[in-house]
């Protein structure tokens, strides 16, 4: 993947497939700690322990039809290439959380990329899932809660193109604001 935000999109789609109706996406850019961390948390079907052990092992992939490996192992190797890590906590029937750490200034770290596009993509594709997107840059925070958005929209669907186009701009501006150095 060219951007970390594309991995995020792919991993959020796992949560969608797991039947979650609440998904948290937290991005934390902390230049002082030289850390970019990403947390994707869901209340979907979860995984049992045995499966969880094999899912983080990139060599356990059974897929032969794709040159692109499975999503989790791809994300894991991208993080590890910077000296970071990917870990998963999951409980069958309760949910899953994926925690990824990148070394911020490592030369092999992909750019974070367009988070506004990733967020609006998952929002527009999943009208019955609530998303909580929290993004901090050196302590400054941007927050998007679809529960709040849907309350404003009432019976106008969030997935309408007009709304999505507005949301892309809204998130882009919000992220620009927290990224400006004081």
């Amino acid at each position: 993947m060219l951007e970390i935000s594309l991995h995020v999109l792919d991993i959020v789609n796992n949560s969608v497939k797991a039947g979650a109706d609440l998904i948290g996406i937290t991005i934390c850019e902390d230049k002082q700690q030289n850390l970019l961390s990403i947390d994707i948390t869901d209340n979907g079907c979860g995984m049992d322990e045995a499966f969880l052990r094999s899912v983080t092992d990139p060599f356990k992939t059974t897929r032969t039809t794709r040159k692109v490996g499975m999503g989790l192992s791809l994300f894991k190797s991208a993080a590890e290439a910077t000296g970071g890590s990917l870990s998963i906590a999951s409980e069958k029937g309760k949910g899953t959380s994926v925690h990824v750490r990148f070394v911020y200034d490592h030369i092999d770290r992909q750019p974070l990329g367009d988070m506004a596009q990733t967020i609006t993509t998952v929002l527009s594709g999943n009208p019955s899932i609530d998303f909580l997107y929290r993004h901090t840059v050196d302590g400054k925070e941007f927050l998007l809660d679809t529960h709040e958005i849907r309350q404003i929209l009432g019976d106008v669907e969030l997935s309408q193109p007009e709304i999505i186009v507005w949301l892309v701009d809204y998130i882009t501006e919000g992220l620009q604001e927290i990224s400006q150095s004081a």
Partner: peptide
């Protein structure tokens, strides 16, 4: 929009369509 699609550039295609 599976992993293969995303890696190949499906996200900007989707957003251009929308």
């Amino acid at each position: 929009m599976a992993t293969c699609g995303i890696a190949a550039g499906a996200r900007p295609v989707l957003n251009a369509l929308v």
